[in-house]
Design a protein around this nucleic acid. Structure first.
Length: 533
DNA sequence: CTAGGGTTAG
């Protein structure tokens, strides 16, 4: 028996990845008299838009149909909505569909896709009106899509909440959407409040909250939630219900938090958990592991995970480069960069790549090489330097004591220098004893953030170095009046799953004396010693 | 064709 055309088309598309394959299939369909069969056209449009990211050809197929049905409009609008630069086209097509009576009438499936194209054009409200008018507002799927759409528009969170509050029926999905909305604007408190109100929870809603924490820098809180999730899932007291086990998305978030806080033990546990759970090491998981190991200083492990990733994407390369750069392995970072350019396939270095690369040069003292890559970024890759790149470059030049060039760069910047730029310059000045320029940079910092006790303290110290004692007193008086205090430097180490925190000059630890003695024997002085808080 | 969750950056 001959395989039917339906299966043939699906099989061909699942194996194809090139426009030529698509054209062959099209030719085949035309000879069989199926050039205008909606079902096949639908498959072709989706393939073209999703696999090939070729919107113009998808539109070409669409435009050659006599009267596209609702499926085809939906497919075409979905295609546009998933490519941010073509958002207007999605709405245009939708309006066209509404305006002409010969086109299909909207159903409730199309609205989520239309709403996805509203984020940048801020037209959620218009579509909302249309939804109400056409009587689709009572569909939970549409309602949730509305909440999501409002929450992604700048300043739209209040509207999102309003729609959410008026829902006829809240479920775990609409709750999760709202939690993510709060997380997106950094309002973790409200995200948590809503999470606590939920009577039923699933994996995505845990993930939304954990991601909310880690994306807003609340790494410890994220870890705490992760531990709670693991605890609930494995039900340590009871009979082990194993519901809501962390999945790939969860571990990616948790690993990010481990990297940022240096929790290597937990990171290793998660790696084991991934292995035991039989998760596929997709690029997200792999990259998160590389980043965690890299940040925790296990460069060998990071490298191993990186090497076995068969689909190294931009982030994979960037994570590996950053890991090496972070630990001063400039040669390694540069080698990976070169490998990326040579064997990275379609992957092209982006602005993050160059931050890592410049960082590597800074830590290795490779000033000229750093300059070279900075130029390469602009000329060969057409990347406009961001303030971050300038920060790296100033850092690079400052540490090398090349202050004239550093100031040239500052003057040539296309934007106002920020705190990091002045901070980098100041740091270089301190290393090289350039107190005159240090005063200038520190003043800029204080100007930037007059209530920052740290900046004030640095300025006062520099005045001290310069013997400007009146100025020293002035700065201290201002700081005192404003109640601006320097946040003490802090460092910590993880031993047996416990984090020990150390602040400068704090002697509150019961073992202070012992710690001091050991550290003294190690560094030979008490001045730089940290004591546990 | 059907609403929610993911990594990298001075």
């Amino acid at each position: 028996m001959k395989p039917n055309l339906n299966d043939q088309v699906l099989a061909t598309l699942s194996k194809s990845n090139h426009l030529n394959h698509l054209k062959q299939l099209q030719a085949h369909l035309i000879t069989l008299g199926h050039a205008h069969t909606h079902f096949y056209a639908f498959k072709l449009v989706r393939f073209c838009a999703i696999t090939l990211s070729n919107l113009s050809y998808a539109r070409l197929i669409f435009d050659h149909l006599y009267s596209p049905n609702i499926y085809l409009y939906t497919a075409m609008i979905t295609a546009y909505a998933s490519h941010p630069t073509t958002h207007p086209s999605a709405l245009e097509l939708f309006r066209h569909m509404l305006r002409f009576p010969t086109t299909p009438r909207p159903n409730h499936f199309i609205f989520p896709h239309v709403l996805k194209s509203c984020y940048e054009s801020r037209s959620t409200g218009l579509v909302h009106a249309q939804i109400t008018k056409s009587g689709f507002e009572q569909y939970p799927v549409v309602q949730t899509a509305l909440v999501d759409s409002y929450s992604r528009v700048l300043g739209g969170l209040r509207c999102a909440r309003k729609v959410f509050d008026e829902l006829s029926e809240r479920n775990v999905v609409s709750f999760t959407t709202m939690v993510s909305g709060y997380a997106r604007v950094g309002d973790v408190d409200n995200a948590l409040r809503l999470f606590n109100e939920m009577e039923e929870r699933d994996v995505p809603c845990w993930n939304a909250l954990i991601a909310g924490c880690t994306q807003n820098g609340l790494f410890n809180q994220g870890i705490e939630l992760f531990r709670r999730m693991v605890g609930v899932a494995f039900d340590r007291e009871g009979e082990g219900q194993c519901k809501n086990k962390p999945n790939q998305v969860t571990v990616v978030c948790a690993l990010s938090a481990c990297g940022h806080t240096g929790m290597l033990q937990l990171g290793r546990w998660i790696h084991g958990y991934i292995y035991k759970s039989g998760f596929v090491l997709d690029s997200f998981v792999s990259n998160a592991l590389v980043d965690m190991y890299g940040k925790c200083g296990c460069l060998g492990q990071a490298r191993k995970v990186f090497e076995i990733n068969p689909e190294k994407g931009l982030t994979s390369w960037n994570s590996m480069i950053n890991s090496l750069a972070l630990h001063g392995r400039s040669d390694g970072a540069i080698a990976i960069f070169e490998e990326m350019v040579e064997h990275g396939g379609s992957v092209r270095p982006d602005e993050v790549t160059f931050i890592g690369l410049l960082n590597a040069c800074t830590h290795g003292g490779l000033v000229d090489q750093g300059y070279y890559y900075f130029e390469m970024m602009i000329r060969e890759y057409g990347i406009e330097p961001q303030i971050e790149h300038y920060g790296c470059l100033i850092d690079l030049l400052g540490r090398a004591g090349r202050f004239d060039e550093a100031m040239e760069v500052v003057k040539g910047m296309s934007m106002e220098p920020d705190e990091v730029v002045w901070g980098s310059l100041l740091n270089g000045c301190k290393v090289h004893g350039r107190n005159d320029l240090a005063e200038f940079a520190a003043k800029k910092l204080v100007e930037f953030d007059p209530h920052n006790g740290g900046y004030g303290t640095m300025l006062a110290n520099i005045y001290g170095e310069l013997g400007k004692w009146d100025e020293v007193r002035n700065v201290w008086r201002t700081l005192k009046q404003q109640k601006s205090y320097k946040i003490p430097g802090c460092s910590w180490i993880e031993v047996d799953d416990q984090v020990h925190q150390f602040y400068s000059l704090d002697k509150s630890n019961p073992k202070t004396e012992e710690i001091y003695n050991i550290l003294e024997s190690l560094v030979g002085s008490r001045n730089e010693v940290m004591v546990e808080f």
